[in-house]
Design a protein around this nucleic acid. Sequence first.
DNA 1: ATGAACATTTGAAACGTTTACATCCGCAGA
DNA 2: TCTGCGGATGTAAACGTTTCAAATGTTCAT
Lengths: 346, 346
Amino acid sequence: MSSKPTMRDVARKSGLSIATVSRVINFPGEVPAETAEIVTAAMRYLNYRPNINGRRLKMSQTRTVGVLVPTLANPVFATSVQGIEQEANIEGLTVLLTSSNYDPEREMGAVSALLNNRVDGLILTLANADNNPVVDLLLAEKIPFVLLFNQPERADIAAISVDNAQSAFDITNAMIAKGHRSLAMVAGQFESSDRSRQRYDGFCRALDQAGIEKKHLVQVRFGETDLVEPLRDLLLGPDAVTGIVCSTDMLAIAAISACRAHGLSVPGDVSVGGIDGISVGGLITPKLCSAVQPTQEMGRQALAFLRGLIKGQTNPQSLLLPHHLSDGDSIGLFRGNSPHRSSTRV
Amino acid sequence: MSSKPTMRDVARKSGLSIATVSRVINFPGEVPAETAEIVTAAMRYLNYRPNINGRRLKMSQTRTVGVLVPTLANPVFATSVQGIEQEANIEGLTVLLTSSNYDPEREMGAVSALLNNRVDGLILTLANADNNPVVDLLLAEKIPFVLLFNQPERADIAAISVDNAQSAFDITNAMIAKGHRSLAMVAGQFESSDRSRQRYDGFCRALDQAGIEKKHLVQVRFGETDLVEPLRDLLLGPDAVTGIVCSTDMLAIAAISACRAHGLSVPGDVSVGGIDGISVGGLITPKLCSAVQPTQEMGRQALAFLRGLIKGQTNPQSLLLPHHLSDGDSIGLFRGNSPHRSSTRV
DNA sequence: ATGAACATTTGAAACGTTTACATCCGCAGA
DNA sequence: TCTGCGGATGTAAACGTTTCAAATGTTCAT
């Protein structure tokens, strides 16, 4: 009476066998309504709850999926997880969530822990999808997995993302179209994010196409929100830029803040664009202009996709979801260097 | 050879018994270095990974804790989960995360699922901590749990939060100190959040103390970010306010946006204050003035506290962590109704 | 040589499920 | 009456661990 009641207790209480109890739980249709009632009554009486761990041990499928994201502090990932959980809930799947903090070492540890839990599959956002030991491990062990936000080079890996390079290309072009010729990109460190590099590539492509030679790049540690110093030269130096493309919206918001700290107005003196489309971007002033990806939907799709893989559907294919530019006002017409700005220059 | 190797396989391979293998894994110290080496070699050779579900079934403790938050879309909760995971990682605990979407019905379902997983304890942020069937269930089943952000009336429930009423009181007072006498609160619906109500109480207390009679209140659905219509009367009506206290920072950011949409400047025409202290608040313009709570730290503490309860430490006590007002500039001096504002009024 | 004391290792019984297989029973058709 | 069938239930063997009690081997004082 002290410990939790088990199926055996329910069986005893209802005068039936443990097998019948199990059937009532798992295949209510295959049992006469009358017996089912007896059993459920006993369960209610005893306050019985099935021990999922017993089931998980016995069954080959655990109906659990593992999720690894870099961090929950960035709303992009938080909302994608929301999408995953939403879809998982519908399917009655349990989600095991971990985060790597952008640290490749922790990625392996986290995935290892998830595998010890015998998850049926994984959804991962990796620092670097290419040449990644985690990916190799998963392929070797034949565990179904889907990459989210990563855009791996190998075609035989399931991945759901937007076209990172194209996103950056588009937002950069939006600036060029407004007359800006002196641009910089602020990006998360490439070692911590392949997306960061891919987006930089798109940035460069846009500049090349416009015949712009100077390609400024500032890499910042992830989680960093104070860009005042990192951007000083870019904003006030001898060849200051008039447009900053940020590899994420979080960086863009931080960049706008840094511009202000340097006495520059956005978009008056400097235009700033982001990538991701996090929701606060639409609320701040100036409204952030960003290459928006359907984050939550991507999470949902990732889970749906993973479910397919788990069911044995082979030939994983990558999905590139469409992005779009939001109509913000953080990108403005090029006006030369405003008086205010030149006066501010050190 | 097809399926995953088990301890039995490792035992066979190393010519030792399954019990010895288990001891190598769990008590490496109690086994001669030589045998340990043989066993680990076998494990490496077979690519063995322990099946945690087997262990969980056998052991009385699962070394798993369940976490329930309203949503990950609000950075307050996302960062608190970060804190929880951080601390859990150190302890080698697994975190099972679910969200309720502010829906009391889903709360019970989610907790039930967690209990089926036989979690050792729970960390919960509930819509309403008082008279909550989930709390009753947990108390009845004697499952250790800690409330996070909730401030229950009952003293026998472990809870970690800031003083919600006091937070609202302080931020409201900051406005009053700047000369504002016509104030409103924008809050999440009380049914979905006891904090919302507690914060409203603090708001009222501040107004009472200042001898202000009119107490405006607008309740909005959670997740709502478009406050243009909800705030119209408040901002443009016959007795428009000059200060808005928001029950969360997310609402505050949305409120600022709405003010702008109505042609009002913050803090020129209207002052806006928030509660929570999410990090973007410090990056936007105007810098959000908020009653800041140490969100991540609270998550960490919640886990530490829960660990104590699980270890059998009795007499749960509530912890009220200190909050502080951030020095933002979203709250400004009362200037009467500016010409701009009156001209904008419909 | 004998047995006590100790260090290692092992056997086997759980933990709470699922499920293939067996059993039981009533009833229709012969 | 017997055969056979099908529906309802029961038996028992897994699943992969942990762990207690017991066995085995080793060392050492007697």
